[in-house]
């Protein structure tokens, strides 16, 4: 029963928060609700018993990615509403509604199929008893999904090298020290 309560509570909160993210004109509201929604999604993982994934959700989305968002936030006046340029709101509404409908239909179809054969739902990699969550994830990650894992690692490495090169072009210029200024204000010491 606790799981059901938690599920519906989290669902309602997440949907509400992400709605705020989409609808709000205030960028601070949007960012806050996005972060809160991300935190609450990790709640789903915890109720499912996938502690490790829940924590990864917390650390990666709440910590790392939102820190980048917050850097972007520094370019806006957080206390003012932004004016959106909406050329045809009807089209946006139509496309958004359509994609939402398609998603719902997919899940309804899946649900119907599952209801017909309840036994057909089995986990591909069931949780091993007595072994921690992290070990389970590690087993799958380093056996079946080894290649995607390594490819992702290479991609991140590429991104990191690119970032270093982009930033490194001006690495010789110090942002904090103005060498020219030192000479201007240099005090001429009297020779004893």
């Amino acid at each position: 029963m606790y799981e059901l309560i938690a599920f519906y509570l989290f669902s309602a909160l997440i949907i509400g928060l992400f709605l705020v993210t989409v609808m709000s004109k205030n960028i601070l509201y949007a960012m806050t609700s996005l972060a809160a929604g991300m935190v609450l999604i990790s709640g789903f993982f915890f109720t499912l018993g996938a502690d490790f994934l829940g924590v990864v959700q917390l650390i990666v989305y709440v910590g790392a990615i939102m820190a980048l968002y917050s850097f972007a936030m520094m370019f806006f006046d957080a206390t003012k509403d932004i004016k959106e340029k909406n050329t045809s709101s009807a089209l946006v509404f139509l496309l958004g509604g359509m994609s939402a409908l398609v998603l719902v239909l997919i899940f309804v179809g899946l649900n119907q199929a599952n209801l017909a054969h309840p036994d057909a739902i089995t986990a591909l990699y069931p949780m091993t008893e007595g072994v921690g969550n992290a070990q389970d994830v590690g087993m799958v990650l380093f056996t079946k999904y080894l290649v995607p894992f390594e490819v992702a690692a290479v991609m991140l490495l590429v991104a990191m090298i690119a970032g270093i090169i982009l930033a490194g072009k001006k690495m010789d210029d110090s942002l904090t020290e103005d060498l020219g200024a030192d000479e201007e204000i240099m005090i001429v010491k009297d020779k004893k």
Binding site: A35, D51, V56, V62
Partner: peptide, 18 residues
């Protein structure tokens, strides 16, 4: 008593910076 206690604590403290 999560079996990934350390990660949870660190993640939650990171969230505290909001």
């Amino acid at each position: 008593d999560l079996n990934i206690g350390i990660l949870f604590v660190l993640g939650m403290m990171a969230a505290g910076l909001y």
